[in-house]
Simulated scan of single mutants.
Amino acid sequence: MPILPNTEFLVAHYMPYTELPPEESGRESLWVDIPNSLFDPKKGHDLYGRYFHEAVLAEKLGFDGICINEHHATASSMMPVPSLIAATIFAQTTKLKVCVMGTPPNMDSPNRLAETYAMLDVMSGGRLEVAIPLGTPMEYWVNPVAPATARKRHREAIDIILKAWSSREATSHDGEFYHYKYLNVWPRPYQDPHPPIFIVGSGSLETVDLAVEYGFGYASTFSPIPKQLAALDYFQKKTIESGRTVRPSMFPLTVMTYVAETDEQALAEFEPHAKYYFDFLLRPGEFANLPGYIGLDELRRRGGHVLPSSHGRFDWDDLQNFYRVAVGSAETVADKIEKWAEEVGSNRIIFEVHTGDMPHWKLAKNMTLLAEEVVPELKRRRDTNQPRAEAAE
C-alpha cells in the first residue's frame, strides 16, 4: 500500500561532539562523568556552524521539518538547551518546522519552559512542535530531581504548561511539587491553543497512557520494532476507548537512514559511523541503571534492563533485525519506508540522517538522495497507486 496522502518528511539531527581523542574509546561511559576537559570549544564552535548549515540544507532540499533533542553531560549531543538550537534554526530558515524532542519539563521550571516555547512559536510564525520526554536515566544523575518522583513531577509540569498556554487571563497553580501565585505566559503561543505536542517514550505503557490521557501524539524512541508496534496497538486501542480519533500524524515513523548508489556502497559508507555511534557515543555504563526510574512491572517487562542492549554494543545483524534501519540504494530504502509506513499507518516520516561521526559530505549526500530520489519515488507510488516491490517483504 502506498504512503498516505499529505505525508510529511522530516529529518532528525542529534548534533554530537565527534572530536574525542581515540584513546577515550576505552571509557566505560560517555555520559554523566565524562570530563569536559575533553571538549575543545573551538572544535565545538566549528561543529555548531556545520550542523546549522545542515539544518538550512534540509529546508533547501524541501524537507518539512527537523527534529532536535536534549541531553546533558554527554558527547552524544551538543544540545543541553535545544530551545537555543531551535531559535538559531528558525532565524536561518523560513519554512522548516522544528520539533524540539525535547526538554523534560520536570527538570525545568514548567512556566519558564512554557514561556520559552511560546516565544519560539511566535518568533517562527507557528513552526514549532514539541515532544515531551521523561528524559533518559542518565539525565537524572546531573539534575536535582529524585527519579522516584520523576513521573509525578512530569505530569504536574505538563498540567502547568497546558494551563499557562490555554488561559487567556492570569491564573495560578498550587500543586504537590510546583507553586505559582501567577501563571501568565506572555507572549502566548502563535498556534492556538498551543503547538502540536507528542509524548516521547520507549514503549512503557505508563508513558503511552499519559499520551492518551492528554490527547497528544506518541513518539517512540529507538526501541525494537515489536515493542513499537505493541505500543502503537495499545495507543490506538486506548485512544479509541477515550472517545478520540487516532490521526495518522499521532504516531511518527522514525527510521535511521542512509542512501547511496548501491546497497553495498551504502553499507560500506554507513557502517563505521553506526559502530562509532552504538559502541562509543551511546555507551551509558552503569548510569543507565537508575533505581526508581521505572516501575517494577516495567523493569520486569524489560528483563531487568532500563535501556536496550544496543546502547554500548554494535551488532549489524541485530540492528537490521530489530530496529527500523534503512541503508541501501534509493529503491531499497523506498521499499522499506513504504512497508513500515503501511505497518504503522503514519503520515509523518522522520529520517535520522546523521549517525555517529558521519562527515558532512556523507550527510549531504544522504539527505540529497533522500530528497531527490527516495521521497519522489514514494510520492510517485502514492500518486499512481503502485504497490511496493515484493522484494521489500
Rank of each mutant, 00 (worst) to 15 (best):
Y17T: 00
S76I: 08
Q228W: 04
E54C: 08
L299A: 03
S77C: 15
R50D: 13
I197N: 03
H154P: 01
F52W: 11
H354L: 05
E213Y: 08
G62H: 06
K163Q: 06
W340Q: 10
S172Y: 08
L290K: 13
G44Y: 10
R244I: 10
D263I: 03
R247T: 10
D64S: 13
T171K: 13
V327D: 03
A391L: 11
P144T: 05
L84N: 13
E390I: 06
T245G: 02
R27A: 08
R244A: 12
T245S: 00
A364E: 11
V344K: 09
S204H: 03
S220T: 15
S242L: 02
G243R: 00
Y178F: 14
D192F: 15
A86C: 06
D279C: 06
K365W: 06
M119N: 08
G243H: 04
A157Q: 09
K163E: 04
L296G: 14
L128I: 09
C67H: 14
H173S: 06
P22Q: 04
P104C: 07
G312V: 06
K227S: 15
V325H: 07
K97A: 04
A392Y: 11
E115F: 12
P248D: 02
P137L: 11
M15S: 01
A146T: 05
E8I: 08
E393R: 11
L134C: 01
A91K: 15
R380C: 03
I294V: 10
A91T: 13
V100N: 05
T384M: 08
